[in-house]
Design a protein around this nucleic acid. Structure first.
Length: 734
DNA sequence: GCTTGCGGTATTTTT
DNA sequence: TACCGCAAGC
């Protein structure tokens, strides 16, 4: 009991309420920086330490492998011992494990394969071609996302066909059915199937469901705002009507609607689980006051949320700097210069540049290179999506699952060994006739093939078989090494140029990853499964490098200094062709909110007046989100050669009444800054030396606001930069 | 079967 | 602008 008290003693009042909740459903509404992960880990530790739960009864679900790993580590540190027997991992890993344990009951072959995005695309390409659907009518990309959406909403091809209204949906349903048949005949499941089939399995097989529900008596879910319908259903199946279910989330940080995240899961939690307790964490331990105020001003414009306020525990801080750049190069230069100025005082790993789309990273990279500032781009082309890695993995998949037709297709002619489209087509026809998988058809060497193709296929099959034999005895790292040698994959990149070196280094990393997995007791099949569920979320972070990242990839992270860039209408909020609805706008606003709340001490918001995107010059009107930032916390700067003051560019005031009352374009309301010709009536001007009662001596950097409402940005020798209202602050001219 | 060149298209992406 | 995928030519 002493242990549990000690755990609670380390928490604030709200956190304590959440952690020490007994049984029954619990929703923890955890605003940005309020200690969400802390609550989750302490709660697990508290349940275990107090004897309410035993560790094999705990099922904790996260969205990333990285989050899962961190959770285990933190709980084990709190418990001072291992967390054994329970499950801590992603939804997908849980589902996959379930399907691997019960493939028959799930209607799957015993060694079913996992189709990755590439496989999906290829299959859909084929399907669309076969059905003679012009890409103008339905692109493979659109088809994939719409099929995924259907699956996330618990719809199979049949249900989709029944629900289809209009020719478009009818067509999609047809494509869906053909795609699903393709998966089935290839003995594969896609990512969405993993969850969906797990749900179907539990719905159908009551003993299995009851077994799991009886075992996992404590369910905990992280990032609940991003769960979709299938995931909610999975939880319901595991938990029953009044489960010991703890969910933690924040609707303001839901940024995956486009992937099926159902905001209603969190907004209507109490409806779905009557009698649920709701605890709101209202203290933010991350961001300085102005940053929090800025973020709050923006997110307040969203309707789909629980109204709430976060109070900063991180103390006061300098204003949020808004920089209006001339173009994207100027924007990048500003950011790089600001970073350079902080070098030495700040670990570069504490600095992040966050943008909406990956394509924005280029100019920043160029400027950071110019100033010799190290950086890492998060996202970009990911390790596991590199061609050389995927090629090697295709072989491994084939070794692990001999009937993986998709892997076969990728591996069989890489490196080129004379097995082209014609050969594949023959094999496909043979496979269909014999009702066998594609690799099996290749093993049987159909008559129609040319002698050359037969020889090549024979060699290929022999190679894979040999590797499979090796996998039974040798460690995984060695298998990969042998595979790279004997397949000729390694030889492909024997050159001396940078790209070849890069690819060789990646392949070496793959060998290392396989060896490391083997050390953890995984066999080759296990390694292949794990890799399929892996993403680059594990990307090595460096304390010595500035982080360039999309907003999505920045979720859950924090930095001392954040540059949220590209705050222009059309970019953030991003405008795509097609309907722009309110929900889209709210999600974009949440993205901006997530970005802003990553900052601990210093936040920069930047926009460019013109931007070159996709080779075209785009006029950049400042984002409406910029307008929503309360003026009081902002310090404005503009590009040196920008003539017009920033505010004249602001779009018509949007949702905020105060903004509407202060027309943005009135010349009289322009700031009295360095660029202003008009002197301030009270004689304040940049460069003037002043003295403050508490802050001591300083110099005026900027004069902002109207004559009636002046704000001075002053740099004090002792206290640093402050924003003051001269009529309130006792300020003397020194 | 491989190489080259043209044209079309770009978001976000925990799994 | 830059890249990728596809089709035509070698």
């Amino acid at each position: 009991m002493e242990r549990t008290a000690a755990l609670l003693a380390e928490l604030d009042e709200d956190q304590r309420q959440a952690v020490s909740h007994g049984d029954g459903p619990l929703l923890v509404v955890a605003g940005a920086g309020s200690g969400k992960t802390r609550v989750l880990t302490y709660r697990i530790a508290w349940l275990l330490a107090g004897g309410l739960a035993r560790s094999h009864e705990v099922l904790a679900v996260t969205f990333t492998n990285k989050a899962a790993r961190e959770m285990v580590e933190r709980v084990e540190r709190l418990l001072v011992g291992p967390l054994a027997g329970g499950f801590v991992g992603t939804f997908h890993r849980f589902a996959l494990q379930l399907l691997r344990n019960h493939p028959r009951e799930a209607g799957l072959p015993s060694r079913f394969a996992i189709a990755d995005e590439d496989d999906q695309r290829r299959m859909l390409d084929g399907v669309l071609k076969r059905l003679a659907v012009p890409t103008s009518q339905l692109s493979p990309r659109a088809a994939r996302s719409r099929i995924s959406a259907a699956k996330n909403a618990l719809l199979g091809p049949r249900e989709a066909a029944e629900a289809a209204r209009g020719a478009q949906e009818q067509l999609l349903a047809e494509v869906f059915a053909a795609y699903q048949e393709e998966l089935r005949s290839g003995g594969a499941v896609d990512f969405d199937d993993m969850l969906l089939l797990a749900v179907r399995l539990l719905e159908r097989e009551e003993p299995i469901r009851r077994g799991l529900a009886g075992r996992f008596r404590w369910l905990l879910v992280d990032e609940f705002q991003d769960t979709n319908r299938v995931q909610a259903r999975l939880l319901a199946l595991l938990g029953g009507t009044r489960p010991n279910l703890t969910v933690v989330g924040d609707e303001d940080q839901s940024i995956y609607r486009w992937r099926g995240a159902e905001l209603d899961n969190i907004l209507r939690f109490e409806e779905n689980y009557p009698g649920a307790r709701v605890v709101t964490l209202g203290r933010n331990y991350r961001s300085a006051e102005p940053i929090l105020a800025a973020a709050a001003g923006v997110i307040a414009n969203n309707a789909s949320r629980r109204p709430k306020r976060l109070t900063s525990q991180a103390g006061a801080g300098g204003p949020v700097v808004v920089y209006q750049a001339a173009d994207e190069t100027d924007e990048a230069r500003f950011v790089a210069d600001e970073i350079a100025r902080r070098r030495g005082r700040l670990e570069l790993g504490e600095v992040a540049v966050l943008f909406r789309i990956n394509a924005q990273s280029r100019p920043f990279e160029a400027e950071l290179v110019r100033l010799a500032l190290p950086y890492v781009v998060v996202g970009g082309t990911r390790f596991w999506e590199r061609a050389e890695i995927k090629d090697a993995l295709a072989y491994l998949r084939l070794v692990a699952a001999p009937d993986d037709g998709l892997a076969f297709r990728r591996a069989v002619n890489v490196p080129a060994r004379g097995i082209g489209a014609a050969t594949i087509e023959h094999l496909e026809r043979a496979a269909a006739t014999w009702q066998v998988s594609l690799p099996e058809a290749a093993r049987r060497l159909p008559e129609q093939l040319t002698a050359r193709a037969r020889l090549a296929l024979e060699r290929f099959t022999a190679l894979v078989d040999e590797l499979r034999g090796l996998a039974g005895q040798a460690p995984a790292g060695e298998v990969v090494e042998r595979l790279l040698e004997q397949s000729g994959l390694a030889a492909q990149y024997a050159g001396g140029d940078e790209e070849d070196r890069d690819r060789r280094a990646n392949l070496d990393q793959l060998i290392a990853a396989a060896a490391e997995a083997a050390d953890r007791g995984l066999d080759l099949a296990g390694f292949v499964d794990e890799v399929a569920l892996l993403t680059d979320a594990d990307a090595r972070t460096s304390a010595q490098a500035v982080r360039l990242s999309t907003l999505h990839a920045a979720k859950g992270l924090e930095f001392d200094t954040v540059f949220l860039v590209g705050l222009e209408d059309g970019l953030l909020p991003l405008r795509r062709e097609g309907a722009e609805n309110l929900e889209d706008e709210e999600e974009e606003r949440r993205l901006a909110y997530v970005g802003m709340t990553r900052a601990k001490r210093q936040l920069f918001l930047t926009a460019a007046r013109v931007r070159r995107l996709h080779g075209q010059l785009m006029p950049g009107r400042p984002s409406r989100f910029l307008l929503e930032v309360p003026r009081e916390v902002v310090e404005e700067r503009t590009a040196a050669f920008g003539r017009e003051p920033f505010r004249s560019h602001l779009p018509r005031p949007h949702a905020r009444r105060e903004a509407a009352e202060a027309p943005a374009v009135e010349p009289e309301t322009r700031k009295f800054g360095a660029g202003s010709r008009k002197p301030h009536p009270d004689g304040w001007r940049p460069g003037l030396k002043v003295r403050h009662a508490t802050f001591g001596g300083g110099v005026i950097l900027q004069v902002q606001g109207t004559a009636a409402q002046t704000r001075l940005v002053v740099f004090f020798e002792r206290a640093g930069r402050k924003v003051l209202i001269p009529s309130l602050a006792k300020l003397e001219k020194a």
